[in-house]
Design a protein around this nucleic acid. Structure first.
Length: 726
RNA sequence: GCGUCCUUAGCUCAGUUGGUAGAGCGUUCCCUUCACACGGGAGAGGUCGCAGGUUCGAGUCCUGCAGGACGCACCA
């Protein structure tokens, strides 16, 4: 017996060695010939690309554990199995991280060091991050095909992004428009609706006299230019005022002419039922102004400073100006009353941390209600050549089950989200990312990847990072080339990710994939829960309760960590991860190790090629075990990995080890040769099947045992999944 | 306001189509038996949030309520 087997199992020594053997074998690549019987099916997953912003956290570890279990299971079933890895440049997250580090160390902003230098530094940072991340993916045992690794900013993916933008512009889906955006004054960029967090704040609410009306506002500093007063058309209190009537009112900096507007967006119950609007800095107001064709005027600049319209307050920061403005309003007798306990929600940029100030900006947009002709479609209810919109596609793929979401309650959430979806702002005033492929010369615009000539200026903005992420399932397979990979692996089989990312990523993948390939990006969406600590709190740096997967691997081994992350973790439910749970699976790994050693010690006399006569007691064990195989296989097929892993754990320990191995001891020391040989065969056969079934969950230790019991020229990884022993 | 989820043993959670409750950790007692003390055996511990309903039968389906978490919308 190999001397390694005589010592306790050492995960730290074993895991890197095994991973190296796997990598060298080329077996992660589906093109490498396998010895097992091919099923004729394919199974493909693209790894949701981690952001190159540092290191992986437990959420990534869950993703890797579940996906690897899926992938290894399908590989053992003989499916042509591809798991394609990659990383995401994550424009805003990465740039803000690098910028803040530069500022911390050198007190310099990006404008001090310039575009070129900043990009060079980001590049260095992302390379280091990339290496850390790939190291962690390997440490988890992930059987990804490194030969196909992709990066959102590499040459092929950049080409895909450019091609996608140009085609969508050509078909009228992408347009340029002056519309209201979420402006982050700290990062000096637009951010998407999904990148905003809301916090509650108690703030004074002012009731101001506006001519004959009383209007309410929490933000008097934005009110300088308000010259439209809006009320509900059905509000009887104001029925003497007609749409378009004008009245002169005394306001902050003198008399202005106000125009009456009637609009149903007004809530008659709220405040006095009358409001004035600030279309440049408020989405609802913007919509009202659009409906009635009203003027829009900018009050606050991109840095949060008041513009000349504010008169004496011009150049002041809005946060500082409020007090003085209120004071002036009081002196003019325009303050009716102040409600000090108004609870207001303010928007914060989740990346930059700044208070979002809506602004009207000329940006590039993707229209979700714009009609286009889908030239090629494989979607169930949308024929090739028909006219459709992104929203229609988004609804249809779910209703027809072209895409299935698990757990299915998220389908409702998805549909609700689609209903409220607005046009997608693609422009970002960031430097790190895909530069928008649009060129200007005076009033001329060209949309193409390459510069049309020296006197053309490229749009200074970059694309929202989710634009390239949306292409991910097919850009990684070689699109826009018509590659074999694309034909073989797209649509992908499963997208596995956290439910928190459902909307900003999944919806965009479906939009992009439908438009560019006529296919759904994936058939099945498996949403895992978020990791919480033992007190049920979300893991975050500020709470200091982050569990680093690498620490856990060092302490307990990747196999134990994987089991702890999978068992009891059904889709969509958050799990709390206590270190004791990981520890208990380390003990299990040890159990598997020792039980295997025992079996190997006992079956020495058994001729490997001959099957002995099986005694009746053993036939009962075999029958029960075959039921287990069926049950586990069913759970794997239904993607109940959390149940399959738990049942295997339970049966291996409490049936195989505690009952069958224990009752074998007197048989082996006894004199009944027939019973002894029969039992040897049963132990060997059952152990092999157990190792196979445990392999998707605990790949390292099972592969190591496979080697130590004598399979030095094959891999358990590519052995067939057990069906029945007899 | 609209919607979703959770509430089961001290703790963390399973319980897949309804059939008189399970796991891990913890805990009590016994066992240093030659695979494993990173172990084995035995045990204690729950009126399944509350109130109704459907059913021969409900932790499991329906209604209402309470507490908690989350998503979306509004927020002048």
């Amino acid at each position: 017996m190999d001397e390694r087997f005589l010592k306790p199992y050492n995960a730290n020594e074993t895991e890197p060695r095994i991973y190296k053997r796997w990598e060298e074998s080329g077996l992660f690549n589906p093109d490498t010939p396998k010895s097992l019987q091919p099923s004729g099916k394919t199974f493909s997953i693209v790894l949701p690309p981690p952001n190159v912003t540092g290191t992986l956290h437990t959420g990534h570890a869950i993703m890797l554990a579940i996906e690897d279990a899926m992938v290894r299971y399908h590989r053992m079933r003989g499916d042509k199995t591809l798991w394609l890895p990659g990383t995401d440049s994550a424009a805003i997250a990465t740039q803000s991280k690098v910028e803040s580090e530069i500022y911390k160390k050198e007190k310099k902003t990006r404008h001090d060091i310039g575009r070129e230098d900043l990009l060079r530094r980001i590049d260095a940072f992302t390379k280091q991050s990339h290496d850390t991340i790939t190291g962690q993916i390997k440490a988890m045992g992930s059987s990804v095909d490194w030969s196909r690794e992709a990066y959102t900013l590499d040459e092929k993916r950049t080409n895909a992004v450019m091609t996608a933008f140009v085609r969508m512009y050509r078909d009228g889906l992408i347009y340029r428009g002056d519309r209201i955006v979420n402006w982050d004054p700290n990062m000096q960029t637009t951010v998407s609706d999904e990148e905003i967090e809301y916090i509650e704040e108690t703030t004074p609410f002012y009731y101001l006299k506006y001519g004959p009306f009383i209007i309410g506002t929490a933000r008097p500093e934005t009110k300088f230019g308000d010259k439209y007063v809006v009320m509900h058309p059905d509000d009887l209190r104001y029925q003497q005022y007609k749409q378009g009537d004008t009245i002169d009112v005394e306001w902050i900096n003198g008399t202005i002419t106000a125009t009456i507007i009637k609009d149903t967006a007004i809530d008659m119950e709220f405040g006095t039922g009358v409001m004035t609007i600030t279309p440049w800095h408020d989405l609802t107001d913007f919509d009202i102004a659009e409906r009635h064709g009203l003027d829009k005027e900018q009050i606050i600049d991109e840095r949060g400073l008041l513009l000349p319209i504010a008169g004496e307050f011009s150049g002041q920061h809005i946060k500082k100006a409020r007090k003085d403005i209120v004071e002036k309003l009081k002196q003019k007798g325009l303050v009716e009353k102040i409600d000090e306990k108004y609870v207001h929600r303010i928007a914060i940029s989740s990346r930059g941390g700044g208070t979002i100030e809506p602004q009207i900006k000329r940006q590039w947009w993707l229209g979700v209600d714009r009609e286009f002709t889908i030239t090629h479609s494989e979607l169930s209810t949308i024929p090739s050549g028909s006219k459709t919109t992104m929203k229609k596609i988004l609804r249809s793929v779910l209703e027809t089950k072209d895409v299935q979401i698990v757990p299915d309650r998220f389908e409702k959430v998805y549909l609700h989200w689609v209903d409220t979806l607005r046009d997608w702002c693609l422009s970002r005033q960031l430097w790190f990312g895909h530069r928008i492929p649009v060129w200007y010369k005076a009033d001329e615009i060209r949309v193409q990847a390459e510069s049309p000539g020296l006197d053309w200026q490229q749009d200074p903005d970059t694309l929202d990072t989710w634009f390239s992420s949306g292409l991910w399932t097919f850009s990684t397979l070689g699109w826009p080339e018509k590659t074999d990979d694309l034909k073989t692996y797209h649509p992908t089989s499963v997208l596995e990710t956290g439910y928190d990312i459902l909307f900003f990523w999944i919806i965009r993948m479906i939009e992009m994939s439908a438009f560019h390939t006529g296919q759904v990006p994936f058939r099945y969406v498996y949403l895992h829960g978020l990791v919480r600590d033992s007190k049920g709190r979300k893991m975050s740096k500020s709470l200091g309760n982050i569990v680093d997967p690498l620490d856990m691997i060092a302490k307990y081994g990747a196999d134990a960590l994987r089991m702890a992350l999978i068992v009891g973790n059904p889709p969509g439910n958050d799990i709390s991860l206590a270190e004791e749970k990981i520890k208990s699976y380390k003990l299990f790994a040890n159990k598997v190790w020792n039980a295997s050693r025992f079996v190997l010690m006992q079956i020495g006399k058994l001729d490997a090629s001959l099957k002995p006569e099986i005694v009746e007691a053993d036939q009962r064990h075999i029958a029960a075990f075959n039921e287990l195989i069926q049950d586990i296989t069913k759970e794997m097929e239904e993607k109940h990995y959390y149940l399959a892993a738990e049942k295997l754990y339970h049966h291996f320990w409490h049936t195989f080890a505690d009952v069958i191995l224990e009752e074998s001891k007197p048989i082996f020391t006894g004199t009944d040769e027939k019973a002894s040989l029969s039992r040897m065969w049963v132990l060997r056969t059952m152990l092999t099947a157990y190792l196979s079934m445990l392999h998707p969950f605990m790949p390292f230790i099972t592969e190591e045992i496979w080697f130590l019991v004598g399979h030095t020229h094959s891999f358990l990884m590519t052995e067939s999944w057990p069906t029945k022993i007899s």
